[in-house]
Design a protein around this nucleic acid. Structure first.
Lengths: 152, 152
DNA sequence: GCTTGACTTTACCATCATAGGAAGGTGCAC
DNA sequence: GTGCACCTTCCTATGATGGTAAAGTCAAGC
């Protein structure tokens, strides 16, 4: 097996990125166009696997493709200021915080409703009542002073 | 103004669900087809607004359309056992918990990396190093596919 | 040589909930 | 009778991924 040049399947295995997504990343310009074999198969080198692993790791941490595009640029730039990387990371942490807070607010509201539900054969149900309530119990923002969430 | 029958715009205002989404919900069968005026405009009654508010509240709590379909069925069924509603709610709470935990793991990993980054003009950066690391620091304890935010 | 099976290619469709726009018809106030 | 706000349907896009189909390629076994 020639590890210096491999087909997309092997590259997928080594990088943890599916062949499907490798093609997709190439299509949207996140990674450069792969070199092709005589018959048209994409061929990859170890450095490509390295890049794809970087991408996968960033995805695992929840970075969007756009953010990864920037991270890749910084990664490749030997003269980057680390402040830019840190800023990207912190912005993403803030995003995560916002989404976590939003979901925690949902959870709390839902638990408040569920606590009072008997959960037996009878039809009375405070959960349904809460959902049907005119304008109360909006977990996506105001209730109990939760941080405003991604309104729109 | 005649509150007993309104057009879609007014219904949207009263329910908090956009006209766009009301049509969409009708299209996917979440709500029944609206009655039409002689010229083809959809017309709604107060009870429709009520249903739409129920849907919006459930969406605010992060329920999926499929879950809302079930909740609506239970809501309309006078002989429902409240246990079914509670089970739905608790399943959703579990989903929220899983997503919260996943994002918290991401956040933690990211913070661990960021803490050691100087964030100045120099290029050294533990964040990039962490992303490039062979197979370490995998914060995605859970599945990837479901990780996207609840709204975008 | 020929067959088989595992791989590759492109292209298109689906997801999920929502938003935007185009192109044209309707309703009402002035 | 005109202008404007509203309504209609249909199409497109989002973001990251999975799936499928039809066709071409490669290597091994016979």
């Amino acid at each position: 097996m020639d590890m210096m040049q491999m087909n997309i399947g092997e590259t997928a295995k080594h990088s943890g990125v599916s062949a499907k997504m490798i093609r997709h990343y190439e299509g949207i310009g996140l990674i450069p166009k792969a070199t092709r074999s005589y018959s048209g198969y994409r061929t990859y080198a170890a450095s490509d696997v390295h890049t794809l692993r970087f991408i996968r790791q960033a995805r695992n941490l929840g970075f969007s493709i756009k953010q990864i595009e920037q991270l890749l640029g910084l990664w490749r730039n030997q003269r980057r200021p680390s402040s830019k990387v840190k800023a990207l990371a912190q912005a993403h942490i803030a995003e995560l915080d916002a989404r976590i807070a939003e979901m925690q607010a949902m959870k709390r509201t839902l638990q408040d409703l569920a606590v009072h539900c008997h959960g037996d054969d009878r039809p009375e149900c405070p959960i349904l009542d809460g959902l049907a309530a005119p304008l109360a119990a909006d977990a996506s923002g105001a209730r109990r002073g939760r941080a405003a969430s991604t309104r729109h």
